[in-house]
Amino acid sequence: MKNEWPLWEIFIRGQHGMSHRHVGSLHAPDADMAIKNARDVYTRRNEGVSIWVVEAKHISATAPGEKGPLFEPSESKVYRHPTFFDIPEEVGHM
């Protein structure tokens, strides 16, 4: 018999209009209890207005070994950053 509860990744939306951010992980027997545990572990100091939980096994991730081919090619492509435009002053902070 397996005695460990599955691991859940927890995402909290700090305030309306913001996106959910990954805050950590915890164990719980099911999604419902994962939300309750997340409420008790991660929002007890008034940190959130919404909680998402995802069982960790459902998240696919890039492998650290593939870092080269995946990310390094973009290091030398400064022209992809929109830093070559003059922003009119009226636009203000973007």
Partner: peptide, 11 residues
């Protein structure tokens, strides 16, 4: 029995 319940009970 587990950390999560410990925090929940303390709350």
């Amino acid at each position: 029995p587990i950390l999560e319940e410990d925090i929940a009970l303390a709350n």
